[in-house]
Nucleic acid binder design. Structure first.
Length: 536
RNA sequence: CGGGGAGUGGCGCAGCCUGGUAGCGCAUCUGUUUUGGGAACAGAGGGUCGCAGGUUCGAAUCCUGUCUCCCCGACCA
């Protein structure tokens, strides 16, 4: 992890870390400190928490069980929300005929540069021990590995929609997609990634827009309630719109280095995709009408967002709602006869805890019987971010207690040692539900406080923005500014000015106050307030 | 895609300049002693040095190409 020396991070974003400088020497579980080199720290968390690794194929990662388990939890929880909204899961092909992309000019414009294309269907030996695509097996029409599925789902919709009675048609698929990105980062931007994409067709604009907003709100609630990741939900400016969309909405999360991460998007596509795919229906009057469509998605990028929202210098902290194991029990085994009694005690504890429920589900408890010293295994689970770690030795057993650590409050700041608590088995059984719920809400509160403290409002002229972001080595959060929502060349000029400060337009928050001043870029009367930030 | 850096046992690195068929720390395995807070000691196993060519009697080391990763930039849903 020592290949690089990069951004010094503004310490003001890490009050806890600054405090620790005056505290006893703590031997953290990671070698890279979050406040010293955020990019290197991020990578070390992924490795140390055993979440994923490079695959050797450009931009593609192997997601290991702990990382995938977190994604599976996200899938389960979000899938419940999707189904509760009356949307049905389906599955569409990985390969999309090239011609599909030729029907919507603006759409292909946005994706053409980064598509993987299949051109052959057979390999032959070149006679020198290598395999090459068989020239005789060239596809008549190349197939594109889906970067997103609007076009192919639109095809299906055009077949499935005949009458106004068929609408709305609301579908979702869990799938992998491929976008040939120039620069990749594990979880945040990979060539192949896993996601869910919702696609809906509606009879009219109002219904489609309502669905666009429903999906946005679903993501906001999911991010905050289950990922404990506060977000700003709002509309993206024109230049950040999905290719071909009429409106693009996003949830934006603030990472611990103050940069923004677009964590989910919801698009109102108007009738342009319906036009391209010919999604028409016969209305009540017997006439033909174009459907209005939407699409919305979140991806494995959310895992990266959770890391950068909750991780610390000891590794990941997984919010209980998405933790594959919420409680890990580590028996202090000694290869001696009393191990059996200890294991029995731990098994009983596991069963009692697992019989409890929290956050609407049974408590997920792992009894980690892997051979090895409990103290060594403890640090593995600290790095992985299991919310509650319980160690049990024979002395605990004899006293009917356990030794418990809260991952979000790991250290005793006075001694510099892990902050063990010793509840009785009854006490921990009775309190595990509320403990995990408290951990979940504490994590959200902490993240929300940090976000709110790092959004600056009230900046009225450009010089203040420049001063705010003057030091390119720090990320002083986001600023919300008033603007006149320029378009075309005027918007491009705004982008250029922002680019000089490595800034981007994020979104116009649904919660933003109405504009009442002048545009910070043009001095014309402002029409709304937009979030400006450095971004991933 | 442009600029820079890097690929050597599972992880982190040294060796490369000045070619002579690999070494360190952690991890792993075995044994002994320990045992309530990330154990100690001893021994052992594991790598043809990203890949492919080339130069050479001989290549981790020199040359060419290529792939992958990291940083900056461009790009980005």
């Amino acid at each position: 992890m020592a290949r690089h020396a990069r951004h010094a991070i503004d310490r003001s974003l890490h009050p806890a870390c600054r405090t620790r400088l005056t505290m006893p020497n703590i031997r953290h579980a990671l070698s890279t400190k979050r406040e010293d080199d955020f990019a290197a720290w991020y990578q070390e968390v992924i490795t140390a928490a055993d979440m994923a690794e490079e695959s050797g194929v450009r931009g593609c990662m192997v997601i290991k069980p702990w990382g995938y388990g977190i994604w599976e939890r996200m899938q389960r929880l979000l899938d419940d929300r999707i189904k509760a909204a009356g949307i049905q899961n389906a599955y569409f092909p990985l390969f999309i005929p090239l011609a599909n992309f030729e029907r919507e000019a603006e759409h292909v414009e946005g994706f053409a540069k980064e598509m993987a294309v299949v051109t052959h269907h057979r390999l032959i030996s070149d006679g020198a021990g290598r395999l090459i695509p068989d020239p005789a097996a060239k596809l008549e029409e190349p197939l594109v590995v889906r970067p997103t599925s609007e076009t192919i789902i639109g095809d299906a919709m055009s077949r499935w929609v005949q009458s106004w009675r068929d609408l709305p048609l609301m579908l979702n698929q869990w799938a992998n997609v491929v976008r040939w990105e120039m620069r990749t980062r594990m979880f945040l931007r990979t060539s192949e990634f896993l996601w869910q994409e919702g696609h809906t067709a509606h009879a009219d604009e109002a219904d489609a827009k309502a669905e666009t907003m429903r999906a946005l709100e679903m993501y906001r609630a999911f991010a905050e309630e289950q990922l404990a990741m506060p977000v700003v939900a709002g509309e993206k400016p024109e230049n950040e719109r999905f290719p071909g969309a009429e409106e693009t909405w996003s949830i934006e999360a603030m990472m611990q280095d103050g940069k923004a991460l677009q964590a989910g998007t919801s698009h109102y596509l108007g009738t342009s995709f319906a036009q391209a795919a010919n999604i028409r229906y016969q209305d009540r009057e017997g006439g033909q009408a174009l459907a209005h469509t939407t699409s919305w998605g979140v991806s494995t990028r959310l895992v990266g967002g959770v890391i950068m929202t909750h991780g610390d210098n000891d590794g990941l902290i997984v919010p209980p709602a998405i933790a594959p194991h919420q409680v890990v029990i580590l028996p202090m085994l000694r290869d001696k006869p009393e191990d059996d009694a200890l294991l029995a005690y731990c098994a009983e504890l596991r069963a009692r805890l697992a019989a409890q429920s929290t956050l609407g589900e049974a408590v997920r408890v792992l009894l980690d019987k892997k051979p090895g010293k409990a103290a060594a295994k403890r640090w593995d689970w600290v790095r992985k971010g299991a919310p509650v770690i319980i160690e049990v030795g024979t002395r605990d057993m004899d006293n009917g207690v356990v030794s418990m650590l809260r991952r979000d409050a790991l250290w005793n700041m006075e001694t510099g040692k892990p902050a063990f608590q010793s509840p009785t088995q009854d006490e921990i059984t009775d309190s595990i539900s509320s403990l995990l719920e408290e951990l979940q809400s504490t994590m959200l509160t902490k993240a929300k406080d940090r976000r709110d403290a790092n959004i600056t409002r009230g900046i009225t002229d450009w010089a203040q923005v420049e001063a705010h972001f003057a030091d390119s080595k720090t990320y002083p959060g986001w600023v919300e500014v008033e603007w006149c929502k320029p378009t075309g060349a005027q918007l491009e000029a705004v982008e250029e000015r922002l680019k000089a400060l490595k800034l981007t337009l994020r979104n116009v928050s649904l919660d933003a106050a109405p504009a009442d001043g002048a545009c910070i870029f043009t001095r014309e009367p402002a029409v709304e307030r937009i979030m400006v930030a450095r971004a991933y």
